[in-house]
């Protein structure tokens, strides 16, 4: 565990909590892509099956359970409790265009052809594209509340910090997880455009982040 990994996990947790509280307190999920949240719940489900097979540390177990609980709770808020505020019109990204290639690739490119390993690989590939429906929805509606922008900032920072963590681990212990690193780079690249907008518009204090 190094500072990059820990701060990455903290950013991830902050992002998930920001989103959950935003929906819970505003009693609305307007501007939020339910599809992305379902994909994230799927990412955690397929990645954390090892909760039942291997114990790494209390921190590892607790964080996995917290991520799963918050992810499913958020999906529950969007599709059940506050479903009348869910803007399915704007949340029109075809997730099958993500799921099919990701599933196919996880069968082709993995570390071992075992169910747990393929599901883990699937979750890594899926996570790199899971935010696309949300980013697509923002470009479609042309704007995002600043709280949603903060959510995306922390979510983007989390994997960027993991990249630093992998650099550090490669440098100090020769650890190198090719699948996770390549996917992490792709994932972070998708946020670059958003980061630019965030630091040029949201921080200027304009309440909403309106896209060009």
């Amino acid at each position: 565990m190094n500072i990059f990994r820990l701060s990455g996990d903290v950013c991830h947790l902050i992002a998930i909590i920001i989103l959950f509280l935003k929906i819970w307190r505003s009693k609305s999920c307007a501007g939020i892509s339910g599809k992305s949240q379902v994909l994230f719940a799927l990412v955690f489900t397929t990645r954390y099956l090892d909760l039942f097979t291997s114990y790494i540390s209390a921190y590892n177990t607790v964080m996995k359970v917290v991520y799963l609980l918050l992810a499913y709770s958020t999906v529950g808020l969007i599709f059940f409790r506050f479903r009348n505020s869910y803007d399915s019109e704007s949340d029109s990204f075809r997730v099958e265009f993500l799921l099919v290639p990701v599933a196919g690739l996880s069968f082709l490119e993995n570390y071992a052809f075992t169910p747990l390993e393929i599901l883990w690989t699937f979750s890594i590939y899926l996570e790199s594209v899971a935010i696309l429906p949300q980013l697509f929805m923002i470009t479609k509606t042309g704007e995002a509340e600043s709280i949603t922008a903060h959510y995306l900032l922390f979510l983007g920072l989390y994997r960027a910090l993991y990249l630093a963590n992998w650099l550090w681990r490669f440098h100090t212990e020769g650890f190198y997880d090719q699948i996770a690193v390549v996917s992490g780079v792709v994932q972070t690249i998708f946020y670059c455009d958003f980061f630019y907008l965030y630091f040029t518009r949201v921080l200027r204090g304009s309440g909403k982040m309106s896209l060009p």
């Binding site: 790494i56 071992a112 390993e117 996770a180």
Partner: peptide, 10 residues
Amino acid sequence: DLRINPKDEL
């Protein structure tokens, strides 16, 4: 195949 990483990360 590459060493199966310890999956000690989230």
